[in-house]
Design a protein around this nucleic acid. Structure first.
Lengths: 136, 136
DNA sequence: CGGGATCCCGATAGATACTG
DNA sequence: CAGTATCTATCGGGATCCCG
């Protein structure tokens, strides 16, 4: 049927596609754990439980907002536990669950990969930039 | 010196801190590869080279903009190669480099973890949400 | 026509200030 | 100490335009 405009066809395809994406929530989970802060937090919690402020200090450049937000999602996802000790002042500890520990191994591996290959990547970047500069 | 205001002291601390973060570019690299689209793209390229449009079709929900942008950074970082075949129409293939393949193993493992544990996470979410609802 | 650049806009991250 | 509130800057998504 040629009476459909290109825009209509695109909209239809998109609708069908959105339904498909909803059926496949793995993408959502992958998006969550592929988050920059999440990987840093989970790696940081690997050795053992930590307090909120310790996490903030250990993780370079995280804002309180993102720290709180990431920890909340991780708690909701059953990857960390949040333990409040009602002393004065309050003390809040975060710890990996079993699920979290199994994830920690993988994310730590990624973190170590980054540390191990940072030089190669840096070289590649310089080459790329030089090339781009001379190509004009 | 007590003549510094709290704001000044904070600014100083921040300046020193920024320098430290710049000295530690590992965070930047980790941020790059911990990106949602990057992990999907690298995993998708694992089996072999792919065309731009095939990637767009294989990866759920990626926009052209992010696809292009992510591929450019990955190319710059020496993780993928971009090969243009000047036919009509043009054909552009992307392929993992050796560096990219070493990363691919790790990211695929993360992706598989997500697929394997999606149910546990879903259960945890439901529990968390129920708890939150009844806690009021 | 495939691959990509551009513009516009809503969503989201970050900095800062404030609070139980 | 462990957050919340608020404001702004940046980023992602969608539509549109472009070029070979």
């Amino acid at each position: 049927m040629a009476t459909l405009t290109a825009a209509q066809r695109r909209t239809e395809a998109r609708t069908a596609y959105d339904a498909f994406v909803k059926d496949c929530p793995t993408s959502q989970l992958l998006a969550r754990i592929s988050d920059k802060w999440v990987s840093l937090i989970v790696s940081a919690l690997g050795p053992g439980p930590m307090r909120y402020s310790d996490l903030g200090r250990k993780i370079p450049g995280v804002s309180q907002k993102m720290l709180t937000q990431s920890l909340r999602s991780l708690e909701r996802d059953g990857i960390v536990t949040r333990t409040v000790t009602p002393s004065v002042p309050v003390r809040v500890d975060y710890e990996l669950t079993g699920l979290g520990r199994s994830l920690c191994c993988l994310l730590s591996a990624v973190k170590e990969w980054a540390e191990a290959h940072i030089e190669e990547v840096d070289d590649a970047r310089r080459q790329y930039d030089d090339r781009a500069a001379t190509d004009r």
